[in-house]
Design a protein around this nucleic acid. Structure first.
Lengths: 106, 106
DNA sequence: AAACCAAGTTACTCAAAAGTAACTTGCTTG
DNA sequence: CAAGCAAGTTACTTTTGAGTAACTTGGTTT
């Protein structure tokens, strides 16, 4: 086994998709709330900056975890929601959540 | 639901334990190799610095994922291995790995 | 046409994480 | 007793990520 094997293993890819200060929180909102508009989410999360929220969403769209949908109407509206792939993260995030809640074993 | 709920949920705790440029790689080695000595691991991973390897290991020991054991002998030797809690991460990391390897669904 | 809103973008600053290389401690073999 | 090795530590630099606030675009109401 060699570090090279690691460099493009699935674990690394998956953790890269989740890396970013606010990404887990964004996913949390997406799972509990289904869909949201950019400014609504921005106002829901204290202290997040528009810039970083934007960057995170764009990365998640790039990773096919999130779908961005423009609704034509007024005021102009863009909705973000989990893609099929994003939804497939559900059980994995639950497993992580459960692990994180487990009190120390050893 | 409120962002406060997120701040100390298990998901956040778990992801914090995994955050750090080289931590997933260290876990990868621990799972495949069982145990290692500090310098051996350091030499196995090109480009990692001693300082960061040390910091990562200390955090993981602090999170009870890894156990540090001093073997008295010469040259002096310290062995790092997964704790019971660390081993419990196995299935979770496998799930992440599988997710990361899944080609795009949507 | 002025004021307003959503959704971005931009230039710039600040903070956190990681990298580098030299140094330390303690024990040992030549 | 000098040189050597494991396991750190330290002071310092560089890189990366996040924060701030002002600006833009395009359509809307008054």
């Amino acid at each position: 086994m060699d570090y090279k094997d690691f460099e493009n293993c699935g674990l690394k890819k998956a953790l890269d998709m989740l890396s970013g200060k606010w990404k887990p929180m964004i996913l949390y909102f997406l799972f509990y709330q289904g869909e949201f508009r950019f400014n609504d989410l921005w106002r829901s999360i204290p202290r997040i900056s528009k810039k970083v929220l934007m960057e995170h969403l764009q990365e998640m769209v790039g990773n096919d975890l999130v779908i961005r949908r423009e609704v034509n109407g007024f005021p102009s509206e863009v909705r973000y929601a989990l893609s099929r792939k994003g939804k497939a993260l559900g059980p994995v995030l639950s497993a992580l959540d459960e692990f994180g809640n487990t009190s120390n074993l050893n």
